[in-house]
């Protein structure tokens, strides 16, 4: 919410008392919108419904609803059989196909790569943070341990002295 307020024009009277920097610790890069999804033209796509050969229609009741799309210019093939509905499967397959084609065309600039990159960065930062935390804990633990050892050593020395 604070971030939203920060983006309001400064000329507005009420947010002036707020600090100009963001209070949240999250990265600002996540605010940047992803590039829009690629729109594929219908003429480039061959749709086929996959099923076994043999008689169809009323004689057999098939539950196979798989849809396969082929993007003719690039030759990319995708298949979806996620749901029982063919129209739903077609929508899913179209999305997959658009992502794949975009990745092929734009490479590192594509939506999928950008998304994966963001995810990777987030994970890396999380891992880094957790590693730092455990390193600190370990260091603390080690310090305590050393102190205790020293104390024990002292006690032993005292005992020896008494024994003499």
């Amino acid at each position: 919410m604070l971030r939203q307020i920060r983006h309001l024009p400064i000329s507005r009277p009420f947010p002036q008392f707020l600090p100009k920097r963001s209070l949240s610790a999250s990265q600002l890069c996540s605010e940047k919108a992803l590039p829009p999804r690629l729109k594929l033209s219908n003429a480039d796509i061959t749709t086929s419904y996959l099923k076994g050969t043999g008689p169809g229609g009323q004689k057999i009741n098939k539950t196979n609803s798989a849809v396969q799309l082929i993007h003719k210019p690039t030759g990319i093939v995708v298949k979806s059989q996620a749901t029982r509905s063919r129209s739903q499967n077609e929508k899913i397959a179209r999305q997959l196909l658009a992502d794949k084609v975009e990745q092929l065309l734009k490479g590192d600039e594509s939506r999928v790569t950008l998304k994966a990159e963001r995810k990777r960065k987030k994970k890396a930062s999380r891992v880094k943070k957790s590693r730092r935390k455990y390193r600190e804990l370990e260091a603390k633990g080690a310090q305590k341990g050393e102190e205790e050892e020293e104390r024990e050593d002292l006690r032993d020395e005292e005992g020896e002295k008494r024994g003499e």
């Binding site: 229609g57 009323q58 609803s65 509905s85 063919r86 129209s87």
Partner: peptide, 19 residues
Amino acid sequence: PFGDLDIKCARGVLIPRHE
């Protein structure tokens, strides 16, 4: 599912086919 619709099926009535 039939197109975008959701068709109820019951015994005694033919199930809609993909064709």
